[in-house]
Design a protein around this nucleic acid. Sequence first.
DNA 1: CTATTGACTA
Length: 701
Amino acid sequence: MSLLKTTATLIPKPSSTSTFDSLQCGTLLQSLTNSKSLTQALQLHAHVTTGGTLRRNTYLATKLAACYAVCGHMPYAQHIFDQIVLKNSFLWNSMIRGYACNNSPSRALFLYLKMLHFGQKPDNFTYPFVLKACGDLLLREMGRKVHALVVVGGLEEDVYVGNSILSMYFKFGDVEAARVVFDRMLVRDLTSWNTMMSGFVKNGEARGAFEVFGDMRRDGFVGDRTTLLALLSACGDVMDLKVGKEIHGYVVRNGESGRVCNGFLMNSIIDMYCNCESVSCARKLFEGLRVKDVVSWNSLISGYEKCGDAFQALELFGRMVVVGAVPDEVTVISVLAACNQISALRLGATVQSYVVKRGYVVNVVVGTALIGMYANCGSLVCACRVFDEMPEKNLPACTVMVTGFGIHGRGREAISIFYEMLGKGVTPDEGIFTAVLSACSHSGLVDEGKEIFYKMTRDYSVEPRPTHYSCLVDLLGRAGYLDEAYAVIENMKLKPNEDVWTALLSACRLHRNVKLAVISAQKLFELNPDGVSGYVCLSNIYAAERRWEDVENVRALVAKRRLRKPPSYSFVELNKMVHQFFVGDTSHEQSDDIYAKLKDLNEQLKKAGYKPDTSLVLYDVEEEIKEKMLWDHSERLALAFALINTGPGTTIRITKNLRVCGDCHTVIKMISKLTNREIIMRDICRFHHFRDGLCSCGGYW
DNA sequence: CTATTGACTA
């Protein structure tokens, strides 16, 4: 009964009563297949169903199934296929093709096995799709077996089959095997060369792709647009702007004749420019495009985002909406990442409601972007809500959630997400270990962190990378186990990198250990003489001991190496607009009010017992000037701005690009009590939730 | 009667 019901809904009603003979139908179907015209196929289907023509005429039925398969309409194709008793190889091939090319590689393989079972021999038209399906499913064993069958069946020399084998090995990441197959091929066509080039690029061997291109030219082949796509991708990978521009020029010169120019290619050139960090070139090309499709917009928006220009990315997104282009999931992911960068919480939340309104499925990738945005913008509650509602919590989603808990100092929850994930059988990678270890260190969970560090190699055979060591050193160092941290570094299997020494150096600052600080700083300067933050940290340590001569020496070194401290700035979002403040910034239109507010706060805090920690000012100047310098810090400007412009009781969120200064930390704590505000501050390491004179970090920062 | 390669995402 249920079968009858599905049949009734599957087969459309005839729209006219006129009839064709089978031959006419066959010819018509052929042309419909070539033009992939699904609507006309449906009409024809209706005609031939009436009177049972289809049931009687296997030839027609086979053609119709093939037509549906090519159009990607597999339910109808399958329905007809099931009714045909005498299945020839053309029918099998068409079905396998249909599934393999329409996101159902496992169904394609299932049919292939069924075909073998039926005793139908696969041929040169079967294998390309079977190989494609194996490649897409990453079934290495099966893929190799099919390859062997190709050899046994003597179909190795068929160039279509050969190219498909190449492509499959590249999907497996087995560049060597692909190379061997390619070298042994007797016949090579342009697709063989293109497959080789794109295969190298896909496997991170852009240089190899350029070499293959050279060989291809020497062999007398002229590239087509697929060749250019591979080359552009390679240029982006190795940031070869010069060659990239040459290709752009070539496309412009040859484009008008229509041979190489199309939208695909233009979007790829935009992407190439962005990967070469030449977003301005990408922008110029973009503005000149006659037709901008959603991918054109996405490429440029993601380009701005990846180059760290979140404001431009968001501005472009705004323009996209204004001109009526329809953003898709990919747009949303880039825009969320941009919001994430500049802590634009309200804007990010608007994007989420947009996603819901448009009815986009919040798939795992969009969900992960949302969690990251919310967590990084300071709303852990919203991040958790998205995470809890996700039906599929894969590794990246868990990693982002663990990181989120970590930066908010909620180490216990981070650990429990991690173990929950392991319990579900998800295999952990390096990334999630970094996330969970750093979560432990922000919460002072020393034993738990150590346990996880050793578990990593012992139970999951993930070899620790330098980042894991730096997390461990950080974990031990913050908690005051400086000697143990130093011992970890000395016993490392790998060469300690600058992050490891930086972690120890910061711990030395926290626990005022000058001796170890000097050792770490020395190692750090050897590895990276130009990293300014190490010098700053060391002078902080000397300043805390009032060793002004040493402070001066470090400064002289910085001056000699012509290093400059990166500008420190803070963001605060107001009415979906993000305001940025630099140190001592007077450019804001409310600047006078801001400084008046700070002066007022300073007086009130002093009455409440505030003593400025001027040791954090690295200049040996008078106390009074030092004190004034502290009140120029960007986080205070942002805070004063927010206090002026928001009503009582509103939560304030501030983001700083560097580590929050120790004196500012004290000041913000006191202000949270004085003004009765919840203040959420994010710095380069983590979040600080200030409330009622206390901070969530509990000293672990 | 059929085919292989192909840009923007965490």
